[in-house]
């Protein structure tokens, strides 16, 4: 009778092989699920890529138009825009809450005679500093929530250039993109 080939599954005397294989499979599956979820939930990278594409394409169009003695007027495809009012309101609550919590935690640590930081002024300072910074951000967000989209130049500059504004999606359709550009004849051509 021919000798039977060893089978890693049946002959696994230590009962390790199968659980190990299944465990690895489960871990990898889990990681893939998390990766998919993150990819779905964080669209900022995709918008930024679209912005880069639109800005690059605009650069090409400008160079062609300039060669023919023209200029191009059109939107800045790398800009940011207002978030929703709710987002600012939520931001106010979040930042103010965390700031208050930081201040409170600092005070409690300062007064906790059993704690490591009892009477340590650094903890109060750290709590107060954090609360101040977060409070300022919350105030700024509150300001945005109140003046929402009104013509305050300073507010617009902050919205368009910092994370207070969200990345603006450029036109997805090439025809729409082309339509957003305007040909201007250069003076003294």
């Amino acid at each position: 009778m021919a000798e039977r080939r060893p089978d890693p599954v049946r002959d696994d005397g230590l009962h390790v092989f199968v659980p190990a294989l299944m465990g690895v499979g489960m871990i990898v599956s889990g990681l893939l699920v998390i990766a998919d979820w993150l990819n779905h939930m964080l669209p900022n990278g995709r918008v930024r890529r679209k912005q880069e594409i639109a800005a690059g394409a605009k650069g090409v169009v400008i160079s062609v138009a300039e060669a023919a003695g023209h200029e191009i007027a059109g939107p800045d495809f790398r800009s940011r825009e207002w978030r929703s009012r709710w987002a600012y309101a939520l931001g106010v609550a979040g930042f103010a809450g965390v700031g208050a919590a930081a201040l409170l935690a600092g005070l409690l640590a300062f007064n906790d005679d059993a704690g490591l930081f009892y009477r340590n002024p650094w903890m109060v300072g750290l709590g107060a500093g954090t609360a101040a910074v977060l409070g300022l951000v919350a105030l700024q967000l509150l300001f945005f929530a109140i003046v929402y989209r009104r013509s305050f130049r300073a507010a617009h500059v902050l919205i368009e250039t910092t994370w207070f504004g969200r990345l603006k999606s450029p036109p997805r359709d090439p025809s729409e993109f082309a339509g957003s550009l305007r040909l201007i004849e250069r003076e003294g051509k």
């Binding site: 594409i53 690059g56 394409a57 169009v61 023919a68 023209h70 040909l183």
Partner: peptide
Amino acid sequence: SDEVELIKHAVHGVVHLDI
């Protein structure tokens, strides 16, 4: 794919110039 997107946009833009 990004390069193709950029090309599509640029070509539409160039053709749209109608110089």
